[in-house]
């Protein structure tokens, strides 16, 4: 299966599946993969904290980093993933030009992610974070390979 993760969305899959998300701006794209069980998932979260709109968070926890990330891990565990083996990669969290604090939603998304991971003793294995580039993320669940395409260039994360 080839899954597409839209904004404020999450998908999990197993060997022979692939997951893609397009157009990460300041949103966080997070992939989690267990190379032994060959299962994994991807989250595309838009805003850092669910307290801004609890009603929305209830309807769709994947809109927010603080509610979406735990759910992603839970789903990967449910598929047979084990915490000690997980490979975690983050992409996105970009921001427009200038230093305007108000528009640093990407920055805040990343900060909340780091806090969550740290609290749970999980390390980030790779990241491609910040800057003005939009990003598309391809995630191959047979190999765990994560390819990022930005400004017409592809690179492995």
């Amino acid at each position: 299966m080839r899954y597409v993760v839209v904004v404020a969305d999450m998908k999990v899959g197993k060997k022979e599946d692939s997951i893609v998300t397009y157009a990460l701006g300041s949103c966080l794209g997070l992939t989690v993969y267990d190379p032994v069980a060959q299962v994994g998932g991807m989250l595309h979260a838009m805003l850092p904290l669910s307290k801004i709109n609890p009603q929305k968070a209830k309807a769709n926890p994947f809109m927010f980093v603080d509610t979406g990330v735990p759910k992603l891990f839970k789903e990967v565990y449910r598929m047979g993933g084990q915490k000690a083996r997980l490979v975690v990669k983050a992409a996105g969290c970009g921001q427009p030009l200038g230093k305007n604090e108000m528009f640093k939603i990407g920055d805040r998304n990343y900060t909340i992610l780091k806090k969550l991971l740290w609290k749970n003793g999980i390390l980030l294995n790779a990241k491609d974070i910040g800057g003005t580039g939009g990003r598309t993320v391809y995630f191959d669940l047979s190999t765990g390979r994560t390819i990022i395409s930005s400004k017409g260039l592809e690179s492995e994360l």
């Binding site: 701006g25 949103c27 921001q95 030009l97 305007n100 580039g133 939009g134 930005s150």
Partner: peptide, 21 residues
Amino acid sequence: ILCLMIGIGVGREGLCYKPSP
């Protein structure tokens, strides 16, 4: 700028725009 940030209509140029303070 907000819509670009949340990934709606982000093109090749990404977020390469400057919000006016």
